[in-house]
């Protein structure tokens, strides 16, 4: 196992691990707090719409496929195909954000705010911070699409897969573990 074996730039792996650690810390603290108020956390969690989160997971993993295809196309010099893949991946990101905004509006209409219950403080912080990464990811994908150089497209795709990875890890404690 050598550092040289890692695909892509080492700095991106440092970023990926750092981001995972930040989200892991948030999720861990939330679950520890749940031990003191399981009924309250359970009731708060039951107010969320898991169907929208599930739909967003399908959207995000599919956009990950387009990002991976773009990376492969850029590596063989097929810039047009790479740009198409990046555009579709970015579009997936925008659909994700639209669904997330819709979910936030629904939550708000149901009277759910950050201070309604400690669960919702973590819910808004974790999903909001993740959504900010999705927005940044869409911008990164658009930027690397301009010249569609292989290294840049690989970096953009790696960032995008990190966003995907974080989402599949925050999903169970927020929506599924009742």
């Amino acid at each position: 196992m050598r550092l040289d074996d890692l695909p892509g730039e080492l700095i991106l792996w440092i970023l990926i691990v750092s981001e995972l650690l930040i989200f892991a810390a948030g999720i861990t603290v939330m679950l520890v707090l749940r031990v003191g108020d399981p009924a309250g956390f359970g009731a708060a969690q039951a107010m969320l719409d898991g169907r929208l989160a599930a739909a967003n997971t399908f959207v995000l993993v599919t956009s990950g496929l387009f990002a991976a295809r773009a990376e492969r196309a850029a590596a063989r010099g097929a810039k047009r195909a790479a740009r198409r893949g990046l555009m579709l991946a970015g579009l997936g990101g925008l659909v994700f954000l639209a669904l997330k905004l819709f979910e936030y509006f629904k939550d708000y209409a149901a009277g759910i705010g950050m201070e309604t219950h400690p669960f919702f403080t973590f819910y808004y912080l974790l999903t909001g911070f993740h959504a900010a990464h999705v927005l940044a990811g869409v911008a990164v994908l658009a930027l690397v699409a301009i010249r569609a150089r292989a290294e840049a497209v690989q970096a953009g795709a790696m960032f995008w897969h990190m966003v995907d990875l974080v989402w599949v890890l925050i999903l169970p404690p927020l929506y599924l573990m009742r």
């Binding site: 196992m1 074996d5 890692l6 695909p7 892509g8 990926i16 993993v61 990950g64 496929l65 990002a67 991976a68 795709a157 790696m158 897969h161 995907d164 990875l165 599949v168």
Partner: peptide
């Protein structure tokens, strides 16, 4: 995601 999309399957041990 790590193995397939981030290509760690091809990086021995990682």
């Amino acid at each position: 995601i790590l193995g397939g999309f981030l290509h760690l399957k091809a990086a021995p041990g990682w």
